[in-house]
Design a protein around this nucleic acid. Structure first.
Lengths: 138, 138
DNA sequence: TATTGTTATACTCTATAACTATA
DNA sequence: TATAGTTATAGAGTATAACAATA
């Protein structure tokens, strides 16, 4: 097959996706990485900051700015771990869950629109392949 | 369908592709964007720097560092345009073409390996969908 | 006056190394 | 001494404005 290289295609599509997400996240007062952190929090239960850094692939020092901002906005709380007081347990607040849910819906709709031009079978294969590639290359 | 968000999947896969490309480009003495510029030069014929900036999506001021480096390495030349002497026409040298071809081969092999785990039909659909999405969202 | 290529400046993002408090 | 979280510093990448040469 003769097509442009993966790096080119992926970076172009990534740019498009980010451009479409930006207004959604702006409306919620979230930066891109803030949203990634919220998403990770919804899945894993009460992680320490170190665990959160590991699951998001974000450096622990860079995570701090995101957490500070999210905490100021009342979307997360940081609590001391009574078992090991060096740890700080991060968790979503009700407000954080609400914002996250609304962003997820908007982003889901955006993605549906973005993929709407594909043949249904191609779209399913695309999503399946993309998921497989990311899982197997961990 | 319930899968991780596109932004997450694409950024993960993009990171993986870049990690696999890096040793190839390092071996050729190329940075990521240098390679993108070489690729663009192979397709479009004798562009000015402004045209090259437009086709790569790179800002004209940021392009300059790439061109300086590539010219120092003898992979491209910049020639004055006799028709409009404000323009500088950029073109690949024989050495540049050689390096580009060898990188393309290595990257093609890397991509084949990366995609090898997919069902053949899924792989074809994935490549088709990715190409369609990038073309239609221009 | 407008445009091409260039340089300069400031701003963001990232990487690294220290520092504190706990263990 | 080792670890979790934090802060500080320097570096890379980026955006913006200004500049010289040419149209």
């Amino acid at each position: 097959m003769d097509r442009p290289e993966l790096g080119y295609l992926l970076s172009r599509l990534m740019r498009e996706v980010m451009a479409r997400e930006k207004p959604i996240l702006d409306g919620a007062g979230l930066e891109m990485w803030d949203y990634a952190v919220l998403t990770a929090l919804a899945d894993s239960d009460a992680p320490t900051q170190a665990q959160l850094a590991a699951t998001t692939g974000r450096d622990k020092t860079r995570l701090i700015g995101n957490l500070d901002r999210l905490e100021t906005q009342g979307m997360i709380v940081r609590q001391a771990d009574s078992a090991d007081r060096r740890n700080r347990i991060v968790s979503l607040t009700a407000a954080g869950s609400r914002v996250l849910r609304s962003c997820r819906e908007a982003i889901g709709a955006m993605e549906a629109e973005l993929l709407a031009g594909l043949e249904p079978a191609d779209r399913a294969a695309f999503e399946r392949a993309l998921t497989d590639l990311v899982v197997t290359d961990r």
